[in-house]
């Protein structure tokens, strides 16, 4: 391994030379995938949230009975729903769509106005949501349905909001994976360093007796761990990139547009490229701390 710096300790000849890059490579591979997943989910959630927020449509089904009776009950329910909605803190405005406008909207599907005139019409309420207040659509839909018979909330959005919840859960999970992988890397590096220290103990003793400071010895282990970590990390990243690109390409192939394109922004890519650096930093710092703590117990 000629790319390693000159060291007085025979660190280049122990098993860590192969073990560390391999282990860190795998860790970085996993972390990169998990992180890319978390970031992509974040992007998707953002775009879904943009759909979910803003406006909302409530539909009130026509009541049973004679046309007059139905008209009266439905109008009452409409007023009731409007009252409930306007009392919501997250609702900026709620307006019933006037019946003539509804008929006009229906015309392209139902044909001439006369024919439609007698049909019981569902009523629609346009709700404008406040940007600054989060809204639990599921909860609102439930309360609305309980209070006003026949009232339903635009169910595409409701469904989407549930999906956002799921996606956010997945994102959190991915973050936890990144964290655990970091932890696992640190633990493995500690073990590798300990065995390295045990192997090199006679040499370390000689260095001590010659007047080497702990820092000098720790630096040799740490510099090497950093370089091995970086090599392994770059390898892991290299393997992870095609996987990420493949997933991105597969998602872009889904028609229908309800799955927004799974893409990463430039900033996200930069973040992923930083992972090998982070891994190598974790390896270096962990090694240094482990070595210093071990040396502190020696005379």
């Amino acid at each position: 391994m000629s790319w390693l710096p000159h060291v007085d300790l025979p660190v280049a000849e122990d098993g860590n030379g192969r073990f560390l890059p391999m282990m860190i490579g795998i860790m970085v591979f996993l972390a990169t995938l998990a992180m890319a997943g978390a970031l992509a989910v974040e992007n998707v959630v953002d775009s879904w949230n943009r759909d979910v927020t803003g406006t909302l449509t409530i539909q009130i089904m026509p009541a049973e009975g004679t046309p007059e009776e139905s008209e009266r009950v439905t109008s009452a329910r409409l007023e009731q729903a409007l009252g409930l909605l306007r009392a919501e803190s997250s609702v900026a405005d709620a307006q019933a769509i006037p019946v003539p406008r509804l008929r006009a909207l229906m015309e392209p599907w139902l044909g001439s106005a006369e024919l439609v005139a007698d049909l019981p019409m569902p009523r629609l309420i346009d709700v404008t949501l406040r940007e600054d207040k989060p809204i639990d659509l599921g909860d609102l839909a439930k309360r609305l349905a309980d209070a006003v018979p026949g009232a339903t909330l635009d169910d595409h959005r409701l469904w989407l909001s549930k999906l956002v919840g799921l996606a956010e859960g997945l994102g959190t999970l991915a973050r936890v994976v990144v964290l655990l992988v970091t932890l696992a890397t640190a633990v493995a590096v500690v073990q590798a360093t300990r065995s390295g220290l045990a192997t090199h103990r006679p040499a370390i003793e000689v260095l001590h007796l010659i007047g080497a400071q702990d820092d000098y010895i720790a630096r040799q282990f740490a510099t090497r761990a950093m370089l091995l970590g970086l090599a392994g990390g770059l390898l892991g990243l290299l393997l992870a990139l095609p996987a990420i690109l493949l997933v991105g390409w597969l998602s872009s192939d889904i028609e229908g547009g309800f799955v927004p394109k799974v893409t990463l922004t430039l900033a996200h890519w930069m973040l992923l490229l930083c992972l090998p650096l982070a891994a190598s930093a974790v390896a270096m710092i962990t090694t240094r701390v482990t070595v210093l703590r071990t040396l502190a117990r020696m005379l």
Partner: peptide, 21 residues
């Protein structure tokens, strides 16, 4: 200790040379 040890030269009974250097 390191500063002290640097003022002392030692020839060990078993040399204690570093074999890879």
């Amino acid at each position: 200790l390191p500063a002290m040890r640097r003022r002392i030269g030692v020839v060990f009974q078993d040399f204690r040379l570093l074999d890879h250097l």
